[in-house]
Amino acid sequence: MALPGAHTTTKAEGSAASRGGATAAARRASRQELARRIGLGAVVPVALVALWQAASTLGWVSAVALPAPASVVEAAGELAGRGELGRHIGISVQRVLIGFGIGAALGLALGSLVGLSKWADALLGPTIGAFRAVPSLAWVPLLILWMKIGEDSKVTLIAIGAFFPIFTTVYLALRHVDKNLVEAARAFGLKGLKLLTTVQLPAVVPAVFSGLRLALAQSWLFLVAAELIASSMGLGFLLTDSQNNGRTDRLLLAIILLAVIGKITDALLGVVERKAVTRWA
């Protein structure tokens, strides 16, 4: 018997062979692309620092309102020397990671449940929607009253902030999973948790990651909110403390640190996202 479809194989095999030869060149090109992106991305920050330096040396703004870049570096050195800088950064990162982890896990679980089950949607949908409508900072006084000014209240606030972006993206994405794929899997006897892990969750991986990145940004936002209001450590505390003592240099330092650390955590998540999206999409 003739081989059915044998003619179609040469095309795919050919492309597989050329794929091997093309990887080295592609890797070189992508390295150049990366260098170009880093270079371009650095232009504006460098220009800003230059402008900042010019503003202080030329006396456009008073040193009290805007200290020179060098004095911010000096402030960093001084705080680091006393071991305070590491403690502030460490505790803030820890709060964000724990709060984000809890909020993300709950958002994923509840988003899956409400996105997949009509019953759960009818039962929980309106309540969760109402809670989402509460501006999250409104929880602060209640959390402090219940949990006192400790780690629990801060981590809980961050978890609340991280929960909603993930819940919403997972919930919406699950509603739009290709119905044909789900039906095919059901026809092969998959249901419940197995259907969720085999078809529905893989299908929403890209959406989950955009939700995670939104949630991470929210986590930093809520960290500062929590630390501004009530804390004795952390980058948010450094902000209020410096404001009270008139230390503009430390204030600027805290803002720069928030920008840099926030960007780094987002970039790390972005790397995982790219890997996951090539794997699952």
């Binding site: 095919a184 085999t198 699952w280 999409a281």
Partner: peptide, 28 residues
């Protein structure tokens, strides 16, 4: 309900795009 004695091949292949051909066959 879904009957284990049947198997369906649809008009579109409806393979899971994130899995290999092998894993897709194993799904059945």
């Amino acid at each position: 309900g879904i009957d284990g004695r049947c198997a369906v091949a649809f008009q579109e292949p409806r393979l899971m795009p994130w899995q290999s051909v092998r894993r897709n066959v194993a799904l059945g």
